[in-house]
């Protein structure tokens, strides 16, 4: 019954490779951007903070698919010739940077107030305090929600199939058009996503257990 899947397995795996590097690249960018946004949101001068808030508001209120379409349709008109894979990666990163910023902001705020006070009492302030006292604790706390956001991001990469990128979902659709075997093929696609995301979630749970020991 699954011989169709086996016969086309190599195509799905090739797609999975694209999904993986798309995810990894976008996640890395989103993390860096999100951390920056979180810091700005918490500590920047108010006009800048307002700007960041506006950015987050848009990213949280507009579907990823709409952002992808906007990139896909608008950039050519603007005369910008982007590689669609790079474009998709950047849009996904921008979109998830808003969620990453929430992860980091929450983690920074979750560092107990006593820790900030203790650091200040030792004469630390500004960057020293962040680097020596706050950041190490915040990063620990950020671990599990960071992994959860990564899972959403991996699933989110499936949307680039709609703008024509050949990753695993698109590979699946193409095979289905040829073979008319949606159950087998999409099961295969789902299994690939599941393996990636479930490994991440197992890792997230491990981090969670580790952080809860500390406290």
């Amino acid at each position: 019954m699954f011989d169709i899947l086996i016969a086309n397995g190599h195509l799905l795996l090739a797609g999975a490779v694209v999904t993986l590097y798309l995810s990894a690249g976008a996640a890395a960018m989103a993390a860096v951007l999100g951390a920056g946004l979180a810091l700005l949101q918490l500590f920047a001068f108010w006009p800048l903070r307002l700007l960041v808030e506006a950015y987050l508001y848009i990213m949280r209120g507009v579907p990823l698919l709409v952002l992808l379409f906007a990139m896909y349709y608008m950039l050519p008109y603007a005369g910008v010739n982007v590689n669609p894979t790079a474009g998709g990666m950047v849009v996904i990163a921008l979109y998830f940077s808003a969620f990453m910023s929430e992860v980091f902001r929450g983690a920074i705020l979750a560092v107990p107030k006593g820790q900030w006070d203790a650091a200040r009492a030792l004469g630390m302030f500004g960057r020293t305090m962040m680097v020596i006292v706050v950041a190490p604790q915040a990063l620990r706390l950020a671990g599990p929600p960071f992994v959860n956001t990564c899972i959403m991001l991996v699933k989110g990469t499936s949307l680039v199939s709609i703008i024509g990128l050949l990753e695993v979902t698109m590979a699946g659709r193409q095979i289905v058009e040829r073979t008319l075997a949606p159950f087998q093929i999409f099961t295969g696609v789902a299994v690939i996503y599941f393996l990636i995301c479930y490994s991440l979630s197992v890792y997230g749970r491990y981090l969670e257990r580790r952080t809860s020991y500390v406290h």
Partner: peptide, 17 residues
Amino acid sequence: NTPVLVQMYFIFFGSAV
């Protein structure tokens, strides 16, 4: 741990077949 888009395709194309 699976994308909603894939679930949609599974249901939509699957039900047709």
